[in-house]
């Protein structure tokens, strides 16, 4: 029996000879091809990115861990849920994600001293983003707000939350302004991107053009400290002008509210 050494065959997948152009864009160019299809490595790289995005959408928010982290730092906190009973209902019925559950309404109706600013941490479309970035943003943000002489209310952790859930929360607590930290819709390149939505006099019925938004807070995007600084500057402008959204005159750059439909959590 002779030992046959396997002869290395050329890969049936063909690389493209313009891979050097990849440095001009993050787009998936020069992937090569196997027949008319994707080479295995490129196919599985896509599947991996999609899997991370899907998991970010469907991984439940670990509210207990967040509340523990807040307690450790001495921040008063409260947990609420929206009127969406589960993830499927949340995705099909955005209106439910903008309302508080009856029990949460009752909880927030207990009399408290009205805060200047209420901070809401909601899962939105990526619990992963909240878990990864929310505490870091708050650690930078809360001292800034306190230094500005603002009374910060309890940090409200909200499950199955849309951005506008901050409106009934702010109304019940009679807050002057709200900042909602929420998981943005995951893309293939980033599944952990957090958004901050700021609203003057949050009350049910506010529309997106009445909010200011800071987006793409994540590792590799806007750093939590930078996001906190922008939020504090926007809030200062809101308290000076007593308004928010497109009518707010502010030097701080904020993402314009006219995002593509469906992109706002």
């Amino acid at each position: 029996m002779t030992e046959s050494k396997p002869v290395p065959l050329p890969s049936p997948a063909q690389p493209d000879r313009w891979a050097h152009l990849r440095r001009h864009t993050d787009a998936r160019i020069a992937l090569g091809h196997a027949g008319s299809g994707l080479p295995t490595a490129a196919h599985l790289a896509f599947q991996a990115a999609h899997a991370q995005a899907r998991d970010a959408v469907h991984t439940p928010l670990d509210a207990a861990a967040l509340l523990a982290a807040f307690a450790e730092r001495g921040w008063p906190a409260a947990a609420v849920t929206s009127a969406a009973p589960d993830r499927a209902a949340y995705l099909k019925r955005p209106d439910l994600g903008r309302q508080l559950s009856e029990e949460s309404q009752r909880r927030l109706s207990e009399p408290v001293r009205a805060p200047d600013v209420v901070l809401v941490v909601g899962d939105g479309l990526s619990g992963t983003a909240v878990q990864a970035n929310a505490v870091a943003v708050l650690e930078a943000l809360i001292p800034k707000l306190q230094a500005a002489g603002l009374r910060v209310g309890p940090v409200v952790v909200a499950e199955q939350a849309r951005v506008a859930l901050g409106d009934p929360v702010g109304a019940l607590l009679q807050a002057q302004a709200s900042i909602v930290l929420i998981g943005e819709r995951p893309g293939l390149s980033a599944a952990d991107s957090l958004g901050l939505y700021l609203t003057w006099e949050p009350r049910p019925g506010r529309v997106d053009s009445e909010r200011n938004c800071i987006s793409n807070v994540r590792t590799g995007g806007l750093a939590p400290a930078a996001a906190a600084a922008q939020a504090a500057a926007l809030l200062a402008a809101m308290f000076a002008q007593r308004r928010s959204g497109i009518l707010l005159d502010s030097a701080t750059p904020a993402t314009p509210p006219e995002l593509p439909s469906g992109a706002v959590p």
Partner: peptide, 23 residues
């Protein structure tokens, strides 16, 4: 490119997909 629109953040069909269906 690669079915991944990096500006609009959604997945569409790729150049490869078009080759497949044409073929």
């Amino acid at each position: 490119p690669g079915a991944d629109d990096i500006m609009l953040n959604y997945q569409s069909t790729s150049f490869h997909d078009a080759l497949y269906v044409r073929q």
